[in-house]
Simulated assay, not measured.
Amino acid sequence: MANITAAMVKDLREKTDAGMMDCKKALVATDGDFEKAVVWLREKGLAKAAKKAGVVAAEGLCNYVVSGNKVVLFELNSQTDFVAQNAKFIALLDQVGQIIASSNATNTEEALAIDVNGKTLETVIMEASGTIGEKISLRRVQVLTKTDAQVFGAYKHMGGRIVTVSVLAGNDEVVAKDVAMHVAALAPKYVSKDDIPADVVAKEKEVILAAALNENAASPKPKPENIIAERIVPGRLEKNLKEICLLSQAFVKNPDLTVEQYVKGAKSEVVTFVRLEVGEGIEKVETDFAAEVAAQAAAAAK
C-alpha cells in the first residue's frame, strides 16, 4: 500500500477540484496512482462536477429550517436562475437544510464537513452538481438560537431569493413575523445604533465630512469649516445611522411608527435578526450572448 501524503492529496485536489476527503479516498483506492485517481474521481462523478469550479455560481436560493430553539439559515448557489427552480435543486435545498439542522454545525466550514452516510456534505453537493449539470455550492450558513421566552419570526421572499429570521423577546409570533418581513424589505444592517462598530461610525463621519466640505467649497457663500464639522456633519451622521438601524426605521406596514414603537406597543423586544439575499457580494460575470454565439459560429466555420 502506497503512503498517501498530504502533498499528493493537495496535487489531486488542484487537478480535479474534488473534495480533500474524496481525493484521499481516490488515492487509497488506486494505491497512490495519480492518473488512476483522476479517473476514479471522474467515474464517481466528482471530477465532472469539479470541472465547473471556475464558473461563478451567483444564482440559487436561500432557505431556513427551524428545529426547536434553533434555526439554520443558508444559501445554496447555482449558476443560473433556471436551475434554481429545478425540482432536483429544490430537493437538494431541502436535504441540505435538514442535514445542517440535525447537526451541531454553526458555520459553512463545519456544515460542509458534516458526515452524511460516510460522505461529507461537500461531497453530497458535488455529486448533485454532476447530476444537475451546474456548479452548486453551499456559500453561507448561519445559526440563531433562542430561549423558551423568545420567539422566531421567519419570512421567505420570492421563493427564497431573500430569507429573514428575527428573534424577539416575548411570545407574539405575529409581531416577530412582521419584523422579519420588514427586514426583508428595508435591509437594515444593525438592530440599533448601539450595535454599530466604532470604526464604521468613524468612517461614515469621515465620508460625510468630506462631502459636506466639497459642497461648501462649491457654494457661493461658503461657511467656516468649523461650522460644517460641528453643526452640519453631526445631523447628517445621525440621519444616516438611523437609516441602517432596524429599530429607528419607519415600520414598513405602518410608516407612522418606527419599528421600535411597533414592537414596544406589542410588549415585545427585538433581540437580533439575520437577512440573507442570493448572490450578495458575488461579482457576477456578465455574458454577451450574441458575441458568444458569433464566436462559436466562427470557430465552427474554421
Rank of each mutant, 00 (worst) to 15 (best):
K70A: 10
A91L: 00
Q95E: 14
T108H: 11
V143K: 07
N107V: 07
N63V: 03
V151W: 06
M158I: 05
N104M: 07
K177I: 04
V151F: 04
I100M: 13
V71R: 02
G97Y: 10
M126S: 15
K146Q: 05
K156W: 00
E173C: 03
M126I: 08
T145V: 06
A113M: 12
G130P: 08
T123N: 14
I100T: 13
G97T: 08
Q98R: 10
Q98H: 12
L144Y: 02
F74W: 11
V174S: 07
F82I: 00
T123W: 07
Q95G: 01
Q95Y: 08
K119G: 00
Q79E: 07
T120K: 13
N69K: 09
Q85W: 06
V167W: 05
T164F: 06
S129H: 09
L144H: 08
L93A: 10
H157I: 00
V66D: 05
V65Q: 13
E109G: 09
A91T: 03
A149F: 06
N69A: 07
G170P: 03
A176I: 07
Q98G: 10
G97A: 10
L73Q: 05
S78V: 02
V72G: 12
K177Y: 02
N117H: 06
L168G: 03
L92D: 13
E75T: 13
R139L: 06
V167C: 06
R140M: 03
V96M: 05
T106K: 15
V163Y: 04
N117T: 04
T145Q: 14
V167I: 13
E127W: 02
D172A: 05
F82L: 00
L76P: 15
A105Q: 11
S102H: 11
F82C: 01
T145W: 03
I100S: 12
T145R: 09
Q85L: 05
V96Q: 10
D81G: 05
V143Y: 06
G153F: 02
A91C: 01
S166R: 08
E75L: 11
D81I: 00
L112M: 14
K135W: 05
V116A: 09
G133R: 06
D115N: 13
I90E: 06
G170I: 00
F152T: 09
F152K: 02
V163E: 04
V83A: 08
V116T: 10
I132Y: 11
D115T: 01
R139S: 11
A176N: 12
G170M: 01
D81K: 08
M126A: 15
I136H: 11
Q98P: 06
A176K: 08
F74G: 14
T131F: 02
V151Y: 04
V65R: 14
T106Q: 14
Q142W: 04
L73S: 03
I132R: 10
L168N: 07
L121F: 12
N86I: 03
L93V: 04
I136D: 12
N117A: 13
I90Q: 12
